[in-house]
Amino acid sequence: MNLSDPDSMNTVISKVLRYGVLLSGAVIVVGTALLAAHAAFSQSGSFLTYNPNQVPHGSFPVTFNSLTAGLASGAPMAIIELGVLLLLATPVSRVLFSIFLFAAEHNRTYVYITLTVLALLLFSMLVTPYIPIFGG
């Protein structure tokens, strides 16, 4: 594939998005099927409890430790959350790939624009949740 051809940029970005969606969708489907096998006929109320006084507010795994532990034991909730994280990573990888594609076009202005967007995005996603003034 000739990366300096503008058409190939559309093709590559389209593929990044499609594979991201398929992968995250597949993981969420597996987790959902397992969850349904365990709990389809349980009452949903206990799963929907929201505790405003504690973080995390729910009783499902969201921290690195609880997620890895949950995945190791094949917990459906952890598998679904992994799928959700893959879904969240899809737009980020699209921005990341754009940098290389603009670079291959020798489009310097857009390489800088995209690098700035990626930096802002990663800061917002990964850093702000842990800074108190951002409500982390």
Binding site: I28, L48, V62, S124, M125
Partner: peptide
């Protein structure tokens, strides 16, 4: 995605709803 991290860490992304 820029604001998703904060909601995820807070535990607002409930798998039973989101899946």
């Amino acid at each position: 995605a820029a604001s998703a991290g904060i909601y995820f860490v807070r535990g607002d992304v409930n798998p039973i709803i989101v899946a």
